[in-house]
Design a protein around this nucleic acid. Structure first.
Lengths: 207, 207, 207, 207
DNA sequence: TATGAATGAGTGTTCATTCAT
DNA sequence: TATGAATGAACACTCATTCAT
């Protein structure tokens, strides 16, 4: 019998090495040889487990997305059920230290750019995007009408992405707290106006 | 036959071909041969005018930045001097149709990503970034204290970038109007709170 | 669990898979992985039984040659002892259905080509070639002088090979009957002339 | 202006190097690097002129076919118009020294084998095959009925191919004269029987 | 006996760059 | 000024082979 159960170990090794390589030299310079060297494995192992380079990149992006999803889920579970608390939790999930490390943010920007011309990556990005929008919209809908909620979700999603984008363009590790506060503040502005001006869309504005 | 005065014509031809190529196949697939073919020129001409490929890319990014700067300047000159009008003008300049064409936005995201690991491009991106932040901060400072103004500028800059980012990730041409309105609304929220809550930082709140 | 007595079973499995792979995708594309997959075995087993890929190929060619030899022997044993009958039997042995299947003929042409630059295969091919020539020559010698018999054998051997070659270059299964008749006819022409013109080389022309 | 008119020179250099490489180490070992080295050119030049390796191989096979076609045409033009003379001329064209050099014959067998699984090469081989058959058939038709002529053509074509095949499997340069005589003899046998036995298919048997 | 994980040399191909014209 | 022929290093990927289990 062959060495068994290595698959998840090797896959993770290679995905981490890919993230490391993208962080350090960028996707364009992240040759298979470079990644394999970073993982202290041979080049052949990549096709063995991922078929080809695109397979590894896709798996790496999936890992990134899964981490984010988990991070947001965890934050939301730990928060109260009010719209404000839930929205803050979503923001928290997006700005926990693991997500705002220089390495993670660079990977995000890299995959965003790559997804423009790679259908597989694109699909992943779109699905993630829709989930974020839908999560935000859901919460806003509890306190404002549909059209307003959509715009609020669009704005908050853009703000989060924009904060990330700017984070990834800074070399040093990014001031996650500062970013989070900017987003918190935006949520407050949106919710406070809603409470002040209009009627909640569904039920009482139990903020 | 040594034709003279071809330089600006050729340079522009090549820059436009680069943008076209990035739009259509992405930076990774934009080989010199591909760009030269799109420009209907030979490969050799690129080193002739730009030294090497990086030179062409840098020139292309400069062109992009110049266009944006011009667009913002034009919008601001046509606007009233109030903070709100100036902020809206900056937003307008960022969302005029030429800036929110699919082609332009893809180029932006591409260069953002590339600038992470290319010092030359990075410097350009940072300078542009600082100018936007400073422009926004300047206006916010007229109606709020420094710390608040900085956060407001940070937030608005992030929102603008985020709206662009999301625009470039959509295949079709991007709903510039919708995006602009989201940004307008954010400005309004920020300014209105400031007017309501506190004293303007400098002079009367002549909004 | 060490199963015993698997060797001949596994060897045959692998040889058949090799022939199948050569038939379907050609020798150039017949990687060890491809062959092992066709045999529903692992790649490692090949070196276990045959040392390396060349060993497997050699064994496969030997199998091919043994089949042909057996086929000819069987046909000759079932035929009368006259030169004409024996020559026809040799032809029959070369054109029985198992030998003229598309799969077998493609394998033959493949190994012929490979044998040009692989000493081991070459030796096998030469030995086989000599046996055919000698068998044919032997029969012709009974009815014509040495020099003539040699030329006749050379011609008939070439005709048989040529019919095979053309068969293997046709995609569909090859018209063995047609081919056999062409060869029969050639034998008749050679023998009839000999009977008509000259004295047999050895003994009476008991055709 | 660039160095001009190099294309035919380089193409021919590369085709000759391909033949040389196939002769010396076989197709399987004829890597692009090996061929380029033999041509004293760089590897990149092959894609420059032929697109890829398959393009070069196809061009090489075309060259081989063109040489054969020319050789046969030349021989036929220099021969009398009688069926026998024309058939001998076709044989001559197939066995002139350039065609029966070790190098040429090995290339033939190589391409025959390769054509089994490469549609492009296959098409070339089939076209060539049909031309030979049609040429032979045409001549036989002048002295025998259609069905007989077809079989005669099939037989002679197979004999020619078989003689070549056997030639290519011999290491040393091949006895073209001997081979030619065997084929001549076959033609004589076929024509003489026809003259003796039956009526010519078309017109008087002006052999 | 049999597996398949792992290797790394080798392949075809692409590409930025150079340079003679 | 402009070309495109030519280079050769770098790339992703394949593969026969080895070996721990």
């Amino acid at each position: 019998m062959p060495k068994v159960g290595m698959q998840p170990i090797r896959c993770n090794q290679l995905i981490q090495a890919t993230l490391e390589s993208i962080d350090q030299v960028g996707l364009a310079e992240s040759s298979i040889a470079h990644i394999a060297r970073a993982a202290k494995l041979s080049t052949g192992i990549i096709s063995h487990y991922f078929g080809d380079k695109d397979g590894l990149l896709e798996a790496t992006m999936r890992e990134l997305l899964r981490n984010l999803r988990d991070s947001v889920s965890r934050a939301r579970r730990g928060a109260k059920a009010t719209p404000r608390a839930q929205l803050r939790a979503i923001i928290d999930g997006n700005f926990v230290p693991t997500q705002v490390s220089s390495s993670a943010m660079r990977a995000w920007l890299t995959f965003w750019a790559a997804s423009m011309h790679q259908p597989r990556l694109r699909r992943l990005q779109r699905a993630n995007d829709r989930r974020l929008h839908s999560n935000l919209c859901c919460q806003f809908l509890r306190v404002m009408p549909l059209e307003q909620a959509r715009d609020a979700a669009r704005g908050l999603a853009a703000l989060i992405d924009g904060l990330w984008l700017r984070g990834s363009l800074q070399g040093a590790d990014f001031a996650g707290d500062k970013a989070r506060n900017v987003a918190y503040d935006y949520v407050d502005l949106l919710l406070d106006r809603s409470q002040f001006e209009g009627e909640p869309a569904l039920g009482p504005p139990s903020l």
